[in-house]
């Protein structure tokens, strides 16, 4: 480092300029933050931050795509599986009258019983379930692969659309998921937990298991399924969360 000698006035001028730029930048940063934070919200999040979330999805998806989730031996699966939400599961549900509704197109609905779903080839997965809150748990689920289900019921045309929407029978909870993730080989319409029928609080009779997404997308007690090229409404997305929640 070099030492130099400068006049007092030059020293003062240099110092003042540096400090003015410094303070100016902080004031600018402060106001930018205020502006960002008060920007018009889009689905519960300031629009620029919402745009960033969507950009992140396309960057990370573009770079890494839909990979397989790591699986574990059944011995590592939790015996007591955490229950974290009951939105959309009101008490007057009548399981004996339940049938899965698949809306092929408006006015054309397929009704499928649990027995019919159980008769399809079963796939099991033991993976590290991740909640958007930050906890994770290795758990063991069984059901039919969504892609197998689509094939069996001849829904290829519907699944070629961009999104699948799910709604609980009472309409209280609903999710929308991109079909690239829906057709992922580890995505299940799930009816078993630890080799037993799904408990009521885990979404009996049928729930979604989609390991490439946070738990908020694993909708419990599916009432109806539909397909769309525009994003189906999503409960937590409307409350400020990322639409995709991709892991």
């Amino acid at each position: 480092m070099k030492t130099t000698t400068i006049s007092n006035s030059k020293f003062r001028r240099k110092s003042i300029v540096a400090f003015l730029v410094f303070l100016g930048c902080f004031v600018l940063a402060f106001f930018s933050w205020g502006k960002l934070n008060s920007a018009k919200p889009k689905d519960g999040t300031p629009a620029p931050l919402r745009a960033a979330l969507e950009t992140n999805e396309s960057i990370f998806y573009g770079l890494f795509g839909n990979r397989l989730t790591q699986t574990y031996p059944a011995s590592m699966a939790a015996k007591k599986v955490r229950v974290n939400g009951n939105i959309g599961m009101n008490k007057d549900f009548e399981p004996e009258n339940w049938k899965l509704q698949v809306i092929r197109k408006p006015g054309d609905t397929l009704f499928i019983s649990l027995e019919e779903i159980r008769s399809l080839p079963k796939t099991e997965i033991i993976f590290d379930f991740k909640c958007i809150e930050g906890w994770d748990q290795i758990s063991h689920w069984g059901g039919v692969r969504f892609s197998d289900f689509i094939k069996k019921y001849g829904l290829d045309e519907q699944a070629a659309k961009q999104f699948t929407g799910f709604v609980t029978p009472d309409g209280g909870y609903y999710v929308g998921i991109d079909n690239k993730s829906m057709m992922h080989p580890q995505t299940l319409l799930c009816y078993e937990l630890n080799d037993k029928p799904l408990p009521m609080n885990q979404g009996y009779p049928l729930r979604l298991i989609i390991p490439v997404k946070y738990g908020v997308k694993h909708i419990k007690r599916i009432g109806s399924i539909y397909f769309s090229n525009i994003r189906p409404p999503d409960y937590w997305h409307e409350r400020g969360y990322d639409y995709y929640c991709g892991l």
Binding site: M1, K2, T3, T4, T5, S7, N8, F22, W33
Partner: peptide, 26 residues
């Protein structure tokens, strides 16, 4: 007259201070 020593290059100063509010937000 003042004897000064050039200590922190311009880039270091900018990067240091840009980092400060970003880090605070993180």
């Amino acid at each position: 007259m003042k004897k000064i020593i050039r200590k922190h290059p311009l880039a270091i100063r900018w990067l240091h201070w840009i980092n400060f509010p970003i880090m605070a937000m993180m």
